[in-house]
Simulated assay, not measured.
Amino acid sequence: MPVRPIRLYGDPVLRAPSAPIETIDDGIRALVRDLLDTVAEPGRAGVAAPQIGVGLRAFSYNVDGEIGYVLNPVLVEVSGEAMPTGEGCLSVPGLWHDAVRHPHAKVVGVDLDGQEVVLEGDGLFAQALQHETDHLDGMVYLQRLTPEERRVAMREVRESDWF
């Protein structure tokens, strides 16, 4: 399957909460292949279905050499003191700002066989889990910035050549 183009900030699909996946069929299997192919590109830690134009609850990840996916993920646990952490987003290219994230996160969902998947980790993996589930809830990381940082980021978005 192809590497899918990434939707950019301002696209309505990035602002809408994603629908749960009701049935795992050939279309969902193709979506997972596309998510995995798209996240495998160098420098990518995660890709949520809305970022490739699909409003369904699914994301792929690529952290520390481990590539995978989860369907219908729910962020069930975060722990540790939330703190500003350097972050970027494929849908907001060229920007890097400190988003407020917890150092530990746990997501529960299912795989293509309907079996439970538990993803849990610290550091970059925790950050990716929080970032990707935010996408599925219609949120882009810019909304996790402090008010001052968000003003700077929004100015950068408006001045970018892609917006």
Rank of each mutant, 00 (worst) to 15 (best):
T133P: 07
P50L: 00
G43P: 04
G46Y: 10
T146R: 10
T38H: 02
D134Y: 06
E132T: 07
V157I: 14
P42G: 02
R150A: 10
M1E: 12
A58H: 03
V3S: 14
P5L: 08
L136Y: 09
E22D: 15
G80T: 03
D134P: 10
V107Y: 05
G123I: 08
D122Y: 10
D26S: 14
W96S: 15
H97V: 05
L129K: 05
P5S: 13
D98S: 14
V110K: 09
H102A: 13
G88F: 00
G27V: 09
I28A: 09
R101L: 12
S60I: 07
Q143R: 15
P42S: 09
R33F: 06
S91R: 03
Q127L: 14
R101A: 00
L36W: 04
R101I: 03
P147H: 05
G53E: 13
L95A: 06
G65M: 07
L35G: 03
G109A: 11
V107N: 00
R101Y: 01
V117M: 03
V100L: 07
L95H: 08
S160Q: 02
A45N: 04
L75E: 12
D98N: 14
R158G: 04
E159Q: 15
L56P: 09
G86L: 15
E41H: 11
E77D: 15
R29H: 02
W96F: 15
H102S: 10
A126N: 06
A45F: 00
V107A: 09
V117G: 06
E132N: 06
V108G: 11
L95F: 01
V118S: 04
R33V: 08
V63F: 03
D111P: 12
E81Q: 14
D137P: 10
R144C: 11
L14G: 12
L136T: 08
R29A: 13
S18Y: 03
N72E: 04
P93A: 02
F125G: 04
D26M: 11
E120G: 10
E81F: 05
D111T: 13
T146C: 01
G109R: 04
P93I: 10
D161M: 05
G68V: 00
V32F: 08
R57G: 07
P147Q: 05
D98G: 13
Y61S: 01
A16C: 02
E132W: 11
H131N: 01
V78K: 01
G68Y: 01
I67E: 06
H131D: 07
G88Y: 10
M139Y: 15
G43K: 12
G121Y: 05
Y61H: 04
W96Y: 15
E149Q: 15
P50V: 11
G114Y: 10
A45W: 12
E41L: 14
L14R: 08
F125L: 13
R7M: 05
E120I: 11
D26P: 00
R44F: 02
V13Q: 11
Q127S: 14
G65N: 06
A19D: 15
A58K: 08
A99Y: 09
Y61C: 01
P103S: 01
D25M: 11
L142K: 04
L31N: 00
Q115I: 05
V47K: 08
R151T: 14
R29I: 01
V152L: 11
P84D: 09
P93T: 08
A19G: 12
V54G: 02
Y9F: 15
G121A: 01
D26L: 13
G88N: 02
V108P: 02
D98Q: 14
E66M: 10
E156I: 12
F59V: 06
